[in-house]
Design a protein around this nucleic acid. Structure first.
Lengths: 334, 334
DNA sequence: CTGTTAGCGCTTTCAC
DNA sequence: GTGAAAGCGCTAACAG
């Protein structure tokens, strides 16, 4: 069941069959139709491996994510794959599980699969591993790294803007005591959010006590733990900004458990706008960053920096917007 | 940067290098070490495509799911991949998006990748498409299809048991008017749940008015719509069983919106026990089915039905259990 | 527009 | 325990 059988049955050479399937050169329409018919008849599918080996192109992009079970990623993966499929590319999704050791395995798998480019959507990354890729001149696109170079593009998210919006929103409600539950410090995107938060408060001359910054892990449990700490403070904040929605969901959960009313007693802001945020009780106010746009940009960056063509990477910035829902409100007694 | 370069640098033949990497035959330990060292030095990774082509084995399994954005699937995918990696298998995950047209594309992609087996975790499926696989004697494992045959295994979920448990739980709370928000009728797993529900009520001589069965779509929005219908009924149910957790989350959301207290006025039961169910307000009572177990069984079924070995498929049944949380309670005024 | 031919990088007998 | 050599199925010049 290979190309030669099709060729024989259609009375042409295997090269012609190949041309029909790759569309690489003009083939007589009648011949092409005959080939297609025969192929369908005997149920022929071209062998990806032979094709990749022979052509030297895998037509596959690697997509590195931290954790497919984190609701931030499925939409991203879906959009990327969708986009890739449009251009006849396969996507090899690998999941590092937030683990640098697994990251190395992932990179190896991608290289072994001769991917034509890699989108690294995790923030945890070692230069040594990047080198494995760049030594082979494999185009890379990062999320939130900021560095652009030969074969290396970047997607930046405009955290500052989103966080400014959120802070202003909170200020309008009269909040002065605003806390932050940040993500893992080692995570670049989490650090960027924290820095933006601190800068935004400073710019507005709002004091930020040290104990108002708590460390979560971008998971529900981290949000729960941090929220408990915040609620145990002698002087509680009246509003809390969370580094992502999962964290906010954890915080919300603890608030319910401890009988704290949201937003009456404390306002809560998330980040990302994952799908479930809108059906929480109360629906979460959050800063939306479009996963679809990230995915599309990532794909485009790779597709545009194909090995042969443009070498120089580009930097895209993705905007953020405030989605005001019901987890924020006027400060109590204000 | 290929096997020959390694061979030359290590002063052996490419066959020996191949043996070192596949572990297919005994190689002198000293030679093996030398080969490994050289390989590391020049950064050699075997080419998957050449390997697959030459050996005729892709060492890849296909995993077909409906929608990676549905919280049911990420855990399943993760477990399957993890398991596969342990046995040195790659997983090619394809997402049908609940669409039969895309299903056909997915199957084609899997065949083109010469996968050694396919786990079909979606319920929507056409016999014609299955044939594409089985004609090539590719082992298949289904979820909830019940049919077992040559190269075809199945994983059944014991819906009856879980639903019996849930109904008894509700009865103990004094509920008599129990409604169902079912999933898409075309979805086998949804139909199985509905049938189990109807059978369980009948067995206990509980009347089930027609209007107490509503149709959702296994998404949040479907749950919302169905819940609205149910709340508009002249005689409302006192308890609602949902075909999955997402549906229950939608129902819960509408309840909040319309000021209905859960579980005081209406008890709510979900199905699946996705991660977020436990942090909803109130935490969802649900029927747990272990995605890890499904994934493990699926992998094992494929691995055990490898092309050469056992031809006959097997049927595994996976148990379910009730997770009683706070969305169920005594019937109002009871 | 189409056939011939030479590999792509690796695995796998078959000898030794 | 190791090397030589023949492909795996396909693509990509190169002629014609």
């Amino acid at each position: 069941m290979n190309i030669r059988q099709v060729a024989k049955a259609a009375g042409v050479s295997s090269a012609t069959v190949s041309r029909v399937f790759t569309g690489s050169a003009t083939v007589d329409p009648a011949t092409a139709r005959r080939v297609h018919k025969v192929a369908k008849q005997i149920g022929y599918f071209p062998n990806t491996y032979a094709r990749a080996l022979s052509s030297g192109k895998s037509n596959t992009y690697g997509l590195i994510i931290s954790d497919i079970a984190n609701p931030f990623f499925p939409d991203l993966v879906k959009s990327f794959e969708h986009q890739a499929l449009e251009y006849d590319y396969e996507t090899l999704v690998v999941d590092t599980n937030y683990d640098l050791k697994r990251m190395e395995q992932c990179i190896r798998r991608l290289v072994e699969h001769k991917v034509d480019g890699v989108a690294i959507m995790t923030s945890e990354m070692e230069p040594r591993l990047v080198q494995i890729l760049s030594r082979r001149e494999i185009p890379i696109v990062f999320l939130d790294t900021g560095k652009v170079g030969p074969h290396i593009s970047n997607i930046s998210i405009d955290y500052e803007h989103g966080i400014d919006l959120a802070i202003d929103h909170l200020l309008q409600f009269g909040h002065k005591r605003i806390a932050l539950i940040q993500g893992p410090p080692a995570l670049r995107s989490a650090a960027a959010r924290r820095n933006a938060f601190i800068a935004a408060l400073k710019r507005r001359n709002i004091t930020l006590p040290h104990e108002y910054i708590r460390i979560g892990n971008h998971g529900v449990d981290g949000g729960q733990a941090a929220m408990n700490e915040l609620l145990d403070l002698r002087i509680r904040p009246t509003a809390i900004m969370c580094s992502n929605d999962l964290t906010a969901i954890g915080a919300l959960n603890v608030a319910h458990l401890r009988g704290i009313q949201i937003p009456k007693e404390i306002s809560l802001v998330g980040f990302d706008d994952i799908q479930l945020s809108s059906v929480m009780q109360p629906p979460l106010t959050t800063i939306r960053v479009s996963r679809i746009e990230i995915a599309t940009r990532a794909f485009t960056a790779l597709y545009g920096t194909a090995k042969g063509s443009k070498v120089r990477g580009v930097n895209h910035v993705i905007s953020t917007e405030l989605v005001a829902r019901a987890s924020t409100g006027p400060v109590a007694g204000g």
